[in-house]
Structures are given as structure tokens and as C-alpha cells.
Design a protein around this nucleic acid. Structure first.
Length: 603
DNA sequence: TTAATTATGAATACGTAG
DNA sequence: CTACGTATTCATAATTAA
């Protein structure tokens, strides 16, 4: 009974703080100009200013030589340009190096137009890819090759899934080599597209100062989004890539902090630590990205590189509650003056599950549970453990202790009777993760899916600690874009902090999860509008523009993209960031970058 | 058809002995 | 420095039950 108290308390808190928000109806169209005309110039100049400003010419030359261009060409480009604009010089270089290196591939490719292919017809990719591949490559003995995809083929398919054409992808593979990473490949394709676009513009206009990154924004209505995304991708790699070449440093793996306390936890607040964010990362909007800390090597480097080179904050939720949860968070939130959610949740197993204490053996020294996952231990397993223990009266021998303890740790079992261990109940998981009791119960969700949805969720107290700095900044509430929102961990964290939710756009693939969030939204009497969208892949620039227009922009963009292919528990398809589900990280970046673009345009 | 049950290791980090 | 043991891990898929 005591075990439920904290849960009930958090319940009552959740259900009572919903009044007097006095949420203003947002100004209908405070940001009136969503149409492009004057906007693109300001963006372009803003972008340019971040990458220009090198007065010294020799520095400038070395700058481009470091990127791999010949000195001769660099000098020529600077002469041609005349105004010392880094971006226009670069564009010149890209244009002519592309023309020199691979003229026929770029000019005579079957699809001259840089098509943006809709992503729901991947079978087309497969076929055309296979045709293309068997033609250009020499290994076409039998069809067995189709089944066992090589790395090269996987990369091609992956690029096709990202929306590139097979032609673009295979050209990039040829140019960059078989061992090139997907990031390098996308960068190459982006550069090729940009140079091609620049070439087209040069041909048409043939005069004066049109060729700028500006034209990418200018064409925003026609070819727009794909190219804009590509430009930003490529821009980022440009900066990062050549800096590394200059320093001659290899990819240094990101180290996990030990202890895993990030930029501070309630028990040990911030050690007077101040961080300076990269300029491109500074909001608005604020963003907050989450995923498993123990991902395969290189994954967090890539994620960080895409998310504006912000250093990840690795935190184990065992400093916030009674269960471990090692996660990495990349965000641009302030980190000073954080405060924890109240009431403080139980920090030990005993406090969280008092009824287990009676049966807890002295030789089981656990005080924290391990990470809560999507599946629980079987009845057969707990039966084996019971039988193994019943053979001994009193304290079992060390070997049996070790066996039982290993299984208990692996499956997060707790003691519920003499010689009896059991997996956690769904409501206990809800409590441990900071959700209201019965949050995931009923309404058509099965017990199995409850475990899965909870196992894939945030630890609310941890996330709320990071969000707490927003409370003073947004007394009138925030507008939230919640990607991969799941059962609404971010929304609940904000709500329990007392930060009003003005309007929320939640994107979540699971219908049962969407039902859970909507039902919470209605039960807590939220004032604003909750918009649900099923698939991040169909959230395009047009839709975002529309949403930003109606809601006046987003204050915060939260997302924990799928960890399926990153998580250690996955024996079958731990394929890294390019895995089927985990590759949706790129959609988080795509959408975040689009929102930054669209919102920045109106300033 | 849906839901419940069950078995299925490896990648990674870290400590320590040598 | 390496080698080895310990500890941890937002899961998938096949099968059975309902």
C-alpha cells in the first residue's frame, strides 16, 4: 500500500495543476510574412556571415586547399570572385571541380532533374537500383547476391530511402569509395547538387551576382526543401571536416562520463559549469534530442555532428529515481539553475517498492534497478529460480547466489515472496519512470504493449530537470513540437513543472500511444490544441510552414528517435544509425533544421 | 486475429592482474 | 601496455494460447 503513495501523489499533482493558466490565444498572425520575398536575403546573409569573415588572403587560400582543392584553382576562384565571399568562392570551386571531375555523370545522367522522389515507393528504388548495379558492376553471377546485401548495396538502399535518386547515390559511391560513410556520401551528393544548381543558374543568368547560397533559399518554393536540407548538411560537414583536416585529428570517440551525471544532477548540481554553444545551435527554437547512451561506436559522434556539434549530455536516471537509465541528451537549453521535480521520487528499491523488503535476501545487495526494457522475464525463469533456491534451507551457496543474482539483474526481478522473484508490474514501471499511475492502462492497450511503450519512454524526472530552466522563460506557456512523442514523457514533464502547454504538435507512429497522449491531454484539461501526426516522414516543409503559421512558431522541439538498432538488447538488428528504425534520427534533424529555417526567415 | 509467452548473445565499457 | 573477467543493455522473432 505504501508503495502506491508516491504514485498517487504524483497523480494528484498531475491532475490539479491545470487551472489558471490563462493561456492567451496566440496572436493570429504575429509573424505575417511566411511568403518568401524579403526573407531569403536575410537568411542568406545570415548564413554567409557565419562562414565568412576571413580577411587574410593567404589564410583564405589555405582554407580552401585544406578542403582538397588545388592551389591553382583556389587562386583563380578568388580572382574571379573579387569580393572575398567565402561561400561564393566555394561555390565557384565546387562548380568547376565537379565539371572537371565527372562531366558526363552529372550532365548525362538519365534523370537530369534532381528529382525529389516520394518515399513511399521504395520498391522502385530496389528495382532500378538492381538494374543499375548489375550494369555497372561486374558481379552479376546469380541472383543470390540480392539476398545477401553487401555493405555497398545497403548504403545505396539507405540513401534511396533518404530520398536521393539511385543515380546520385551510385555516383557518390563511385567517387567516394566503397568504405565511405553515409555522411560522406550525403555530403558528396549535396555538393554535387549544389554545384549543379549553381551551374544551371550561371547558365541561365550568365551575369552578375546571382550565384550565392542565396539561390537555394530563393528557389525555396520550387526545388526548395531537399536542396535546403542538403545545403545545411553539406555546410556542416564543410566546417567540421576541414577543421579536422587542419588539426589532423581522427574521429575521437566520445567518452561517456563516469559517473554519468551530465551537466549536473539534483544531488550534485552544476559545478559552476558554463558551456558555450556553437553559434548554429543557439535557439530559438530550443531543441532536445534523446537516445541510448550505450550506442555502437561512432553513433553519438554522428548525431552530435548533425545537431550543430553540440556536446551530448550523458545522464543515468539512477540519480533521479530508483532505476537506471543511461541516456544521451543533445540540447541547446541553459544548464544553470536547474531544479528537480517535486515531490522527489523514491531513490532506492526499498523506498519505491516497500513490500519487497520483507522478502529481500541479505545477499542481494541491489539498491537500484537496472534499465527498464520493453520485455520482462518469463514465468519459466522465475520458476527455475524458485526451484534452485528451495533446495537450500537458509543461505544458498555462492554459486546459486551468483546464478540468481545474475538473472535478477538481467531481468530486473524483485522479491515478492519466499524464494519468489517476479518482474515489475506495468504500474510499477509507470511509477518508476515518473508517469501517473494507470497512464498506459486501458483504452484498448494490451499489457504487452504497455511494457513496450513504457520501456521506450523517457524518465520524466530526468527530462523535467533539464526542462526546468524553461519555467521562468515561458511564464505564458510554450508551443511544443514533439517528435516520436510516444506516451508523452516530454508533455508530462512540462506539465508537472507547471509550464503551461499552449499548443502541441505530436508525431507518433503508434496509434495506441497517440490515444494515450490524447486521453491524458483531455483528462488534464489542457487549454490549447493537440495536433497528432502519425508519421514523421510525411511531415514536410509545407506542413511545417502551415503549422508554424497557425501556432506562431515552436518554442521547443523534443524528440527521442527510435533506438531499436542502437540498443544493446537487440540481438537481431543492431545495425547502428542506418538501421531501419534508428535512421529516423535523420528525420529529427531534417525537421529541426526546417523549423529553424522557416522560423529564422521571419525575423 | 490478437495477445501472451519464451528463448535468443554480442557490443561496449571498465576494472584489475599480469 | 595487454588480457581477461565483470557488468550492462529504450529488443526481435518464433511459438503458443486465447
Amino acid at each position: 500500500m505504501d508503495g502506491n503513495i508516491s504514485g498517487e501523489e504524483s497523480d494528484s499533482i498531475d491532475w490539479n495543476t491545470d487551472d489558471e493558466l490563462e493561456t492567451q490565444n496566440l496572436p493570429p498572425s504575429s509573424s505575417s510574412t511566411l511568403i518568401i520575398p524579403g526573407g531569403e536575403a536575410s537568411i542568406a546573409s545570415g548564413e554567409a556571415s557565419s562562414s565568412t569573415g576571413r580577411p587574410s588572403n593567404s589564410k583564405l587560400i589555405n582554407h580552401f586547399i585544406g578542403m582538397g582543392f588545388s592551389e591553382k584553382m583556389v587562386v583563380k576562384a578568388i580572382e574571379q570572385d573579387g569580393e572575398g565571399n567565402t561561400d561564393s568562392i566555394l561555390e565557384y570551386l565546387l562548380t568547376y571541380s565537379a565539371l572537371e571531375n565527372c562531366p558526363q555523370e552529372l550532365e548525362n545522367s538519365p534523370q537530369a532533374e534532381p528529382q525529389v522522389v516520394s518515399d513511399n515507393c521504395s520498391s522502385d528504388y530496389d528495382e532500378s537500383f538492381l538494374d543499375d548495379f548489375s550494369d555497372t558492376d561486374s558481379c552479376h553471377e546469380n541472383q543470390e547476391n540480392i539476398n545477401s546485401l553487401s555493405d555497398k548495396e545497403k548504403k545505396l538502399l539507405f540513401l534511396a530511402d533518404m530520398g536521393y535518386t539511385v543515380e546520385e547515390a551510385s555516383i557518390a559511391m563511385d567517387r567516394c569509395g566503397p568504405d565511405s560513410s553515409v555522411v560522406e556520401l550525403t555530403d558528396f551528393i549535396s555538393a554535387a547538387q549544389i554545384s549543379k544548381a549553381a551551374d544551371a543558374d550561371l547558365g541561365e543568368l550568365s551575369d552578375e551576382e546571382k550565384p550565392r547560397p542565396k539561390h537555394l533559399y530563393k528557389d525555396y518554393n520550387k526545388q526548395k526543401k531537399r536542396k535546403f536540407l542538403d545545403y545545411r548538411l553539406w555546410e556542416r560537414k564543410k566546417q567540421r571536416g576541414y577543421e579536422k583536416k587542419l588539426r589532423n585529428e581522427d574521429d575521437e570517440p566520445i567518452r561517456l562520463p563516469n559517473p554519468m551525471v551530465g551537466f549536473g544532477v539534483p544531488a550534485e548540481p552544476c559545478p559552476i559549469f558554463h558551456r558555450t554553444l556553437p553559434e548554429a545551435a543557439v535557439g530559438p527554437p530550443y531543441f532536445y534530442y534523446e537516445n541510448v547512451a550505450l550506442a555502437p561506436k561512432g553513433v553519438w559522434s554522428t548525431i552530435s555532428r548533425f545537431l550543430y556539434d553540440v556536446e551530448p549530455e550523458f545522464v543515468d536516471s539512477k540519480y533521479f529515481c530508483a532505476t537506471a537509465r543511461k541516456r544521451g541528451y543533445i540540447h541547446n537549453l541553459p544548464i544553470l539553475n536547474r531544479f528537480p521535480l517535486l515531490p522527489l521520487p523514491p531513490l532506492t528499491i526499498y523506498e519505491a517498492l516497500p513490500l519487497t523488503r520483507k522478502w529481500w535476501p541479505s545477499w542481494d545487495t541491489r539498491t537500484k534497478l537496472n534499465c527498464i526494457q520493453t520485455c520482462v522475464g518469463s514465468a519459466k525463469l522465475t520458476d527455475r529460480i524458485r526451484k534452485a533456491l528451495e533446495e537450500w534451507d537458509g543461505v544458498p551457496p555462492m554459486s546459486v547466489q551468483k546464478y540468481v543474482l545474475d538473472e535478477c539483474r538481467k531481468w530486473n526481478l524483485v522479491w515478492v515472496g519466499r524464494n519468489k522473484v517476479a518482474p515489475l508490474e506495468p504500474d510499477e514501471v509507470e511509477m518508476l519512470l515518473g508517469f501517473p499511475k494507470n497512464h498506459t492502462r486501458g483504452g484498448g492497450i494490451s499489457r504487452t504493449d504497455r511494457y513496450k511503450s513504457l520501456g521506450n519512454s523517457f524518465q520524466v524526472d530526468t527530462v523535467a530537470y533539464h526542462f526546468s530552466v524553461l519555467k521562468d522563460m515561458f511564464p505564458g506557456g510554450i508551443t511544443l513540437l514533439s517528435l516520436f512523442s510516444g506516451i508523452g514523457g516530454a508533455e508530462i514533464a512540462l506539465h508537472r513543472l507547471g509550464i503551461p502547454l499552449k499548443n502541441v504538435v505530436a508525431v507518433e507512429i503508434s496509434e495506441t500511444n497517440r490515444n494515450i497522449l490524447r486521453s491524458w491531454w483531455e483528462q488534464t484539461n489542457q487549454r490549447g490544441t493537440l495536433v497528432d501526426i502519425a508519421d514523421v516522414q510525411q511531415l514536410n516543409g509545407d506542413r511545417l510552414e502551415q503549422l508554424i503559421h497557425t501556432f506562431g512558431g515552436f518554442d521547443l522541439i523534443v524528440g527521442g528517435s527510435p533506438c531499436n538498432n542502437l540498443a544493446g538488447s537487440n540481438r537481431v538488428s543492431r545495425d547502428g544509425l542506418e538501421g531501419k528504425e534508428s535512421a529516423l534520427f535523420y528525420d529529427y534533424f531534417r525537421i529541426l533544421d526546417l523549423v529553424k529555417c522557416i522560423m529564422g526567415r521571419n525575423q
